[in-house]
Amino acid sequence: MSMLEIKDLKVNYGGIEALKGISFRVEEGEIVTLIGANGAGKSTTLRAIMRVVTSGGGSIFFEGEEITSMDTQKIVNKGIVLVPEGRRVFPNLTVLENLKIGAYLRADQAGIDKDIEHVYSLFPRLKERHWQMAGTLSGGEQQMLAVGRALMAKPRLIMMDEPSLGLAPLVVKDIFSIIRRIHDEGVTVLLIEQNANAALKIANRGYVMETGRVTLTGTGEELLNDQSVREAYLGKSK
């Protein structure tokens, strides 16, 4: 049984078919990446899994249970979180409050306090700035906060939408090493990236999406060496 299984998922946005029936799966303990150009439907896929957009057909299973039409709240409770594109930290809440709101559905105060310390150990910068309004953080810090906030829900599957978007190369390196570390701690990762090279390097498996369809799949290694992927996404010919 796969941890996450998507079967023939379709999404329509006001008459435009953003997803034309995609299928893929994520096994427990994997890092899986979806790569593809802008508008391929990667973000839509993640948002449909969280049910912040409604799907127009197909089904989504998490650990064997159908979650296609479940409330977002229940899905979060099942252990799936999304780190949204563009970070989307709450600018009017402090860093600490942003972390606390990530644990919104949890009631175990002791566990929450422990996890805040854990997030601080992953991102010491957040501890230094815990009293600041999140809107005043730099882009990289906001991304760290968004990841930390997601971890506060104690997820089993963390989905990240373009975590490296708009960040300085050094920060991008940090983000990828954090993704690896989260994965080492036992969280399954579904990663969307335009930085296909970096994503495929850390991924067990990858799927290539084009205009609402999955067109290619393979292990990270295979896709890195695939001629068409190299030309389209890695900017290397031959």
Binding site: M50, V52, D71, T72, Q73, V76, N77, V81, L82, P84, R88, F90, P91, N92, L93, E97, K100, I101, G102, Y104, L105, R149, A153
Partner: peptide
């Protein structure tokens, strides 16, 4: 309070608040 925090979050960003499990 937690409810107040949720209100402040919702006032800025509906979708992300939803992703936190807030109704």
């Amino acid at each position: 309070t937690k409810a107040g925090m949720a209100m402040r979050a919702v006032s800025k960003d509906f979708e992300t608040s939803q992703l936190m499990g807030i109704k």
